[in-house]
C-alpha cells in the first residue's frame, strides 16, 4: 500500500470517527435532555401529589370547622329559636301566633344560611376581604380584643383551591394569635396591588429563632408555597408578631 493510499485510509477512518463522534454527541445530548425531562416529570408529579394532599387536608379541616360551627348554631341559635317558636305557636293569643310564625321564618332563613356553609361553594362566592372581615367580626364579638381591617383594592385572580388554602392559613394565623399571643389589638392589612396580606398583633410575641414544639408555622409556610405564595414572620418577645402572606402571582 502506497503512502498516499494509507493516508487516504487514515482519513477514511478519521471521517468515520468524526461521524461517529457527531452521532454520539447528538445521542448524548438527547439522552441527557431526556433524563432531565424525566427527573423533572417525577418532581412535578410529586409536587402535584403534595398539592392535592394539601388541598384535601385543607378541605377536610374547613369541613370539620364548618360542622362544629353548624353544631354550635343548631344548638345555640336554631334550637333556641325553635323552642321560642314552639312556645308562641302553642299560645292561643293571635299576636303570639303571628310572632311564632315570624320565628319560623327566621328559622328558615337561618337553616338556609347554614346549609350554604355545609359545602365549600361559599369559598368561591366570598371575597378574601369579606372573609377576613367576617373572621375579625367574630373575634370582636367575643370581646377578646380590638380589631382593625385595612383593605386596599380587591384581590380577584385567585383560583378556588388557592383561596381555600389562603382562607385556612388566615384562619390558622388568627387562631394562633388568639391561642398564644393574648393581644389587645389585631390588625389585618390587605393590599391588592402588592398582593399581600399582613396580620399584625401587639401580643406577647416570641423568638422565631427558637424552634417551636409543633409544626404549625412550617405547615403554614409549606401551604403558602404549595399555591405559589410566600409566608414570612417577624416577632420579638414583648413586641408582638407580624405575619406577611405574599399571594401567588397568577
Amino acid at each position: 500500500m502506497s503512502e498516499i493510499e494509507s493516508q487516504y485510509l487514515v482519513f477514511l477512518f478519521g471521517g468515520i470517527f468524526f461521524a461517529l463522534l457527531m452521532t454520539l454527541f447528538v445521542v448524548g445530548i438527547v439522552f441527557a435532555h431526556q433524563q432531565r425531562q424525566l427527573r423533572n416529570k417525577q418532581k412535578l408529579d410529586q409536587v402535584k401529589a403534595e398539592y392535592e394532599k394539601t388541598i384535601l387536608n385543607t378541605e377536610f379541616e374547613i369541613q370539620q370547622q364548618t360542622l362544629s360551627y353548624v353544631g354550635r348554631e343548631l344548638h345555640d341559635n336554631i334550637g333556641q329559636l325553635l323552642s321560642l317558636a314552639k312556645l308562641y305557636l302553642n299560645s292561643s293569643k293571635p299576636e303570639k301566633l303571628a310572632e311564632g310564625k315570624e320565628y319560623i321564618n327566621e328559622i328558615i332563613r337561618e337553616v338556609r344560611s347554614l346549609s350554604k356553609s355545609l359545602n365549600l361553594d361559599w369559598v368561591e362566592s366570598i371575597s378574601l376581604e369579606k372573609f377576613v372581615e367576617n373572621e375579625l367580626n367574630k373575634i370582636q364579638s367575643t370581646g377578646f380584643c380590638e380589631i382593625h381591617l385595612e383593605a386596599q383594592g380587591t384581590i380577584e385572580d385567585l383560583s378556588k383551591d388557592q383561596k381555600l388554602i389562603l382562607i385556612r392559613v388566615i384562619q390558622e394565623c388568627l387562631n394562633n394569635i388568639l391561642k398564644h399571643a393574648h393581644p389587645s389589638k389585631i390588625q389585618v392589612k390587605i393590599s391588592a396591588s402588592q398582593k399581600s396580606i399582613q396580620i399584625l398583633d401587639d401580643g406577647k410575641g416570641f423568638n422565631p429563632a427558637v424552634a417551636s414544639k409543633g409544626s404549625g408555622m412550617a405547615n403554614l409556610k409549606k401551604r403558602m408555597e404549595t399555591i405559589g405564595g410566600k409566608f414570612s414572620l417577624e416577632s420579638e418577645v414583648g413586641k408582638g408578631t407580624k405575619i406577611e402572606l405574599i399571594l401567588p402571582a397568577n
Binding site: Q7, Y8, F11, G14
Partner: peptide, 10 residues
Amino acid sequence: LEMYYVVIEV
C-alpha cells in the same frame, strides 16, 4: 497536498 484536499472534503 492530496491529503489536504481529502480533509477539505470532510
